[in-house]
Amino acid sequence: MRKVEATISIQSKPESIISAFVNPSLLEKWWQVERAFIDTEVDGIYALTWQVTNKGFGYMSVGNIKTYNPNMQLVIDNFTYFNPEKPILGNMTLTVIAKQNGDQTILYLCQEGYQKGPDWDWYYEAVKQAWPEVLQTLKTYLEK
């Protein structure tokens, strides 16, 4: 199956990077997540929403935490994407690994489990473009 991988070097500690993915107030600051519910226990819920209105959520990503090590790793299984204009796309895995390398941390991100079909192709191409941009936004936020 296809996967999207992105790597970036950030001048920050690994635990600060992992925290930026699980702390709702940090997610709001660097990724503009409007609402989040995150339970970092194994099988805990990981839910993020964007474009919240009085009619509901514009976009949502939800999954179950498979692995959470606050010093280096976050793995989310059953990662599912909701978009009001597309079918529900799910059962992916999102992996975030942060490893110290001198005064930098190498952040590796992998989203995998893309299936076949036009909606999946659209989502794969969108994510392939978005993750490097999103990680650059995280880098800018953490290094300020």
Rank of each mutant, 00 (worst) to 15 (best):
K144C: 11
I8Y: 03
Y46K: 02
M92L: 14
I76G: 00
V134D: 13
T93E: 10
G102P: 09
Q111D: 09
N83G: 08
F57P: 06
I45P: 06
I18L: 02
V127A: 12
N78E: 12
A36W: 07
T137C: 06
D119Q: 09
E28M: 03
R35F: 09
P84N: 15
A126L: 15
F21R: 00
M60T: 13
I88T: 10
V42R: 01
W31I: 01
F21D: 03
P70W: 08
F79E: 00
Y46T: 01
A98S: 08
A130R: 08
Q73P: 05
I38V: 08
T53R: 09
V62F: 05
G63H: 04
R2W: 08
Q129P: 07
N23E: 12
I106Y: 06
V62W: 03
W131C: 01
E34R: 14
V62P: 02
M72S: 07
T7C: 08
P70Q: 15
R35Q: 13
V127P: 01
V4F: 05
V134S: 13
D121Q: 12
N64L: 06
F57I: 13
I65T: 05
A36T: 02
T95S: 02
M92A: 11
S16K: 05
W31F: 07
M72Q: 05
M60G: 13
L74M: 08
G102H: 14
Y123Q: 15
M92K: 12
Y114I: 13
S16C: 03
L74K: 01
T40Q: 04
